[in-house]
Design a protein around this nucleic acid. Structure first.
Lengths: 219, 219
DNA sequence: GGCTTTTCACCTAGGTGGTAAATT
DNA sequence: AATTTACCACCTAGGTGAAAAGCC
């Protein structure tokens, strides 16, 4: 998933042990299609049937509150797939649907049911955070040239597709203005922070060649 | 360090937490030189002055006895350097000296003094294991063509130097016979196992360009 | 026609020994 | 003269979007 979700965490007990995990839940019960002439996502029917639940447990787990709070927690190793039979532990999603990533902070003593293949348990020792600006729509091919440009410009692995001489317009021009901008780091205590007007979140799946790319238009 | 040391561990308490670490200690107080016409390492004076102690703490630490015992514990990420001012946490050695790698199994409750920059503590909760067949001599350039050939043939990253059409003689022929041989996995309970007659251990240091290569001749 | 999969060139990142130059 | 360093081509491993091919 690129850009990757990155969070900063505050308010933990420094000496307590925690897991941090991410899952991705449907925003609604709809399937979408992208309408080119209006540059908008439109409802195109009801959602496909549910997929097996998957949880990405952050690889630094298990760690102390102190350790978690002293670093930016990045989910850049999280992989997506549309293959419902996936056995690589990737998060399974339907293409052309809207999704919300969630961050879970799980106290060790509440993690008995924590598994990559079961829904995250809920209870006193589990806190869940959703950031609405990270909602995205899954695709298997980009529907939106601004998204393509953003990904090429900001992902080091896509350097081979950069074309610095090109004319940039619209969102591309905005991105150019923010050439040194980095994904904002949200604090889980909901402190205020300045964010870009249009944050676009996209993701690309695993090397199993099932590509899932999200492009969300929020206006 | 290549080939990397790989061990299998038995006899731990499955529910206890352990660190596993490696350090590398001098075999004697001598400095060596390689005599080509006799193909032997000869004493060439007394050892250089001691270097700062460094411990490689296995990256899977801290883990349960159960976890450690269920995997082959490989030290392939351990780096060597001859730079006494190294700040990358690499293990510091003198070139042209003989060394013995040691594996330490450290119970969590005895690890209070465990640090990458201090000698491994000793006591009831710490077990240390040395395998004499892994003694090696450090070099900065190979002294011995059989060693060079072995490293090229067995290290995937050296594929570019392979020359499968070459005539192979002596140790090279032996290596060829063992084309599918993999470094033996020692059990720390000292179970018997079959080993190659001539195990040669070598290492190559970190990307700081301080190259340290060991070639040991045991006959 | 819309969506998905496969394959590809092009990157990042870093582990190899060779070789020439530098050091001692 | 011996040893060490700096740089290099050549690998492994894997993350990119483009484009072609395939599917429904």
């Amino acid at each position: 998933m690129f850009p990757a979700m990155r969070v900063k965490i505050a308010g933990l007990d420094p000496h307590q042990q925690y897991y941090i995990a991410m899952d991705i839940v449907p925003v609604d019960n709809k399937r979408y299609r992208y309408v080119y002439h209006s540059s908008k996502w439109m409802v195109a029917g009801n959602a496909d049937s549910p997929v097996p639940p998957r949880v990405y447990i952050h690889p630094d787990s298990l760690a102390s509150g102190d350790t978690w709070m002293r670093q930016v927690v990045s989910f850049d190793k999280l992989k997506l797939t549309n293959n419902e039979l996936d056995d690589q532990g990737h998060i399974i999603l339907h293409s052309m649907h809207k999704y919300q990533p969630r961050v879970h902070v799980i106290r060790k003593d509440f993690s008995s049911e924590l598994s990559p293949n079961k829904p995250v348990p809920s209870g006193d020792g589990v806190k869940t955070f959703s950031f609405p600006e990270t909602v995205f729509t899954t695709v298997t091919a980009y529907q939106n040239q601004q998204i393509t440009r953003l990904k090429i410009d900001r992902n080091p692995f896509a350097k081979g597709f950069r074309d610095s001489g090109r004319n940039r317009t619209g969102l591309e021009a905005i991105m150019e203005t923010y050439a040194f901008w980095r994904p904002p780091v949200r604090t889980l205590t909901f402190e205020d922070f300045t964010n870009m007007q249009k944050q676009q979140v996209e993701a690309l799946s695993a090397p199993d060649m099932k590509k899932l790319i999200q492009a969300e238009s929020r206006d």
